[in-house]
Design a protein around this nucleic acid. Structure first.
Length: 511
RNA sequence: GGGCGAGUAGCUCAAUGGCAGAGCAGUGGCCUUUUAAGCCAUUUGUUGAGAGUUCGAUCCUCUCCUCGCUCACCA
């Protein structure tokens, strides 16, 4: 497993050993920091403003820590830049103050990537850059492995990276290195954190309570997906990693909570793609006495609120398109949308055979084994979804692909369900939840007939869920959204891997 | 799972059926306000792995691995 050390690594190990030999700790236990880089600079600028022109501001002791990002040793002086979690700042070494030994120590034993602690005071260089005049410094952590970015340059405050790390494989497998050298990547994950914070704020302000439900479940359900399975050794029990939170969250409505939400990880044992990762972050909420139209309104507000909180605007650019996230979003009734796109009126075809004949007559391809609902869903995915660049709700779904949604009064084949699309991508899914235990049981049994017995997507019948519903579940609206996809939209990324810190990759065949 | 493309130095990339290169990084030296610092000198390779064709393969062929794109799958 241990790989041969490169010359660069050998070199740094030798430096480390020389430090040890000189009695210098390469990894001291404690650090002292008085300022963040950006705060030190801001303080200095403030003091400059209060100082008469032509005179230097008073020297104030500052201790900073950070990672060495550039070094320009020039004999009797040296310049370098360090980067902390908030920005970067130039530091300046001069033999007059530090002595030959310290100058050599810095020039000979410090490398790019080392963590350093520097104490001194701020001044402006000839070129006007606010810089720390170093009076003392210590190693905080020696870097043995060189970071994979060669060099960078600061032009007008913008860091321009030359020959930056961009091999996606290395970037995802060694995300720490990616983050360390690519500030834009760090920015994505700050946006991600702010997105989740904004979603919480939105729901908290509306009296939702955040809950946590089991990830390890004896039965899986709430979505059509194949699960991951695992096993509890001592209990000798097979368990599934959840594919959704739905059935547990609705049990909580039975328990008397009127508004609950959960933000967490779902696991689906399916193919990976630019918009699918085996584990992904989902937001689900359930709201008593709401229906899907109420949820639809709330969805527009929530997404617009989040964009406003995170980006300060509701207009985003995605895939070259200007997208306006502010309400109202376009709303397309599914039947009408399909008629417009394909000429087929699904209302006229109440079974799969009839619908297939109609699709054939219109020259559409279809899976001959599909149910009516699957056929309709197929038309939606193929003919409608890619065109939903601007935020669009598609509503009123076929019942047989929506076993947990309530039918539209007077139209038993259609349920009160919608999905939200942005940028040609499904973002969320919601419905008026089915709360009739007798109907729910019938739906579960229907599913059992519709799918082959060995089809893992056919969720096992959850009798405990039916029992919960039998105690009485308030009518409610439920909502689920892929948080990763929202972050993709807000950060302009077209790959879900760019917005997941450690995306799933195939294991390397090493060892 | 199918199709297409890619894999060369630590990083970014060249190149050719005939000794594998550049910039940056590294190393040694000079340099007291630089900032992709500069100047001089210099090191670095299982060309993803394996096999085949060939006098000779990084290049052509095959298998495998990994990544990317795409299709399928994904209520």
């Amino acid at each position: 497993m241990e790989q041969e050390k490169t010359a660069l690594e050998q070199n740094r190990l030798e430096k480390l050993n020389r430090l040890l030999a000189a009695g210098i700790q390469p990894y001291p236990t404690r650090a002292e920091v008085t300022h963040r880089s950006v705060d030190a600079i801001a303080d200095f600028e403030n003091r400059e403003k209060q100082t008469p022109p032509g005179t230097e501001p008073e020297k104030v002791a500052v201790t900073l820590a950070g990672r060495l990002r550039s070094m320009r040793p020039m004999g009797k002086i040296s310049f370098a830049h360090i980067e902390d979690g908030y920005g970067r700042i130039q530091i300046f070494f001069r033999i007059n103050d530090l002595g030959q030994e310290q100058m050599d120590l810095f020039a000979n034993e410090f490398d790019l990537g080392d963590y350093i602690q520097v104490t001194g005071y701020l001044f402006r260089t000839k070129t006007g850059e606010i810089t720390l005049y170093v009076q003392s410094f210590i190693m905080l952590a020696k870097s043995i492995l060189p970071l994979p970015a060669a060099k960078d340059e600061v032009v007008d405050g913008e860091v321009i990276r030359h020959a930056t790390l961009n091999d996606p494989e290395v970037r995802y497998r060694q995300r720490y290195a990616d983050l360390a050298v690519n500030p834009a990547v760090r920015h994505i994950f700050k946006i991600r954190a702010e997105t989740i914070k904004a979603l919480r704020q939105f729901l908290d302000e509306r009296d939702f309570i955040e809950v946590e439900t089991p990830i390890l479940q004896p039965l899986y359900g709430g979505a059509a997906a194949r699960p991951f399975t695992t096993h509890h050794n001592q209990l000798k029990q097979d368990l599934y990693l959840r594919i959704s939170f739905e059935l547990y969250l609705k049990r909580l409505l039975v328990g008397g909570f009127e508004r609950v939400y959960e933000i967490g990880r779902d696991f689906r044992n399916e193919g990976v793609s630019y918009k699918h990762n085996p584990e992904f972050t989902q937001l689900e909420y359930y709201q008593a006495y709401a229906d899907y139209l109420k949820i639809m309104d709330q969805t527009e507000q929530m997404v617009a609120y989040t964009a406003m909180q995170v980006l300060g605007k509701t207009k985003i650019t995605y895939d070259g398109h200007e997208i306006e996230l502010a309400p109202p979003w376009k709303r397309v009734e599914m039947r009408e949308g399909i008629i417009e796109a394909t000429g087929v009126d699904i209302a006229l075809h109440t079974n799969a055979e009839s619908l297939k004949a109609a699709m054939q007559a219109h020259g559409l391809k279809f899976n001959p084994n599909a149910t009516r609902g699957k056929l309709i869903d197929g038309m939606l995915n193929e003919f409608l979804e890619p065109n939903f660049i601007q935020p669009t709700f598609v509503y009123n779904y076929p019942r047989d692909i929506s076993p947990l949604a309530k039918s539209i009064p007077g139209d038993p084949q259609t349920v009160e369900r919608f999905e939200g699309y942005i940028g040609g991508m499904e973002l969320c899914n919601a419905f008026t939840e089915l709360n009739d235990p007798l109907d729910q049981e019938a739906r579960f049994l229907e599913m059992g007939r519709a799918y082959a017995a060995d089809d893992e997507e056919n969720n096992p019948l959850d009798e405990d869920y039916l029992r919960a519903m039998s105690y009485g579940m308030p009518p409610n609206g439920g909502f689920g959204m892929g948080v990763d996809r929202l972050v993709m939209l807000l950060t302009g990324n077209h790959s879900i891997r760019e917005v997941i810190l450690f995306p799933h990759l195939r294991s390397r065949g090493e060892e």
